[in-house]
C-alpha cells in the first residue's frame, strides 16, 4: 500500500513540477521520494513507476486527441515501427530517469547515514 501511495505521489508531484520547470524536475522529485524508501530496490521501483506512469499518461493525453498524427511521425524519426512504440520509448525513458534518480538518492542517504554511525 505504501508503495502504491509513493508511486502516485511521485507521479503527481513530478507532474506539477514539470509543468513549471524543465524535464529534469521529474528526476528531482523522484530523487526526493527515493530518500524515503526502505530499500534501494523499492526506491528504484517507485521512481520507475512514478515517472514512467507520468510520461505515459502525458503522452496518451497528447496522443489520443491527436489521433497519433505526431507520435507516428516521431516514431519514424527514431526509426521505430509506429507511434505506439514511441509511447513505449517515452514510458521506459521516463521510468529509467525516475528509477535511477530515486535509486541513487536512496544509496546516498545510506552512505551519509552510515557515516554518522
Amino acid at each position: 500500500m505504501r508503495l502504491v501511495i509513493s508511486i502516485i505521489l511521485t507521479t503527481c508531484f513530478a507532474g506539477i513540477a514539470e509543468w513549471y520547470a524543465p524535464w529534469w524536475a521529474a528526476a528531482l522529485v523522484a530523487g526526493i521520494v527515493g530518500l524515503y524508501q526502505s530499500t534501494t530496490a523499492k526506491a528504484f521501483l517507485v521512481g520507475f513507476c512514478g515517472i514512467g506512469l507520468l510520461w505515459l499518461g502525458f503522452a496518451l493525453w497528447r496522443d489520443l486527441p491527436n489521433q497519433h498524427l505526431l507520435s507516428d511521425k516521431l516514431a519514424q524519426l527514431f526509426k521505430l515501427p509506429s507511434g505506439l512504440w514511441y509511447l513505449l520509448l517515452t514510458t521506459i525513458l521516463g521510468g529509467i530517469i525516475g528509477g535511477l534518480s530515486a535509486w541513487s538518492t536512496a544509496h546516498m542517504k545510506r552512505l551519509l547515514h552510515s557515516k554518522q554511525e
Binding site: G15, E18, L54, R62, P65, L69
Partner: peptide, 10 residues
C-alpha cells in the same frame, strides 16, 4: 519528455 518536449506539439 511528453510534458514539455516534442509531443507538446501534438
Amino acid at each position: 519528455d511528453p510534458v514539455n518536449g516534442a509531443l507538446a506539439a501534438a
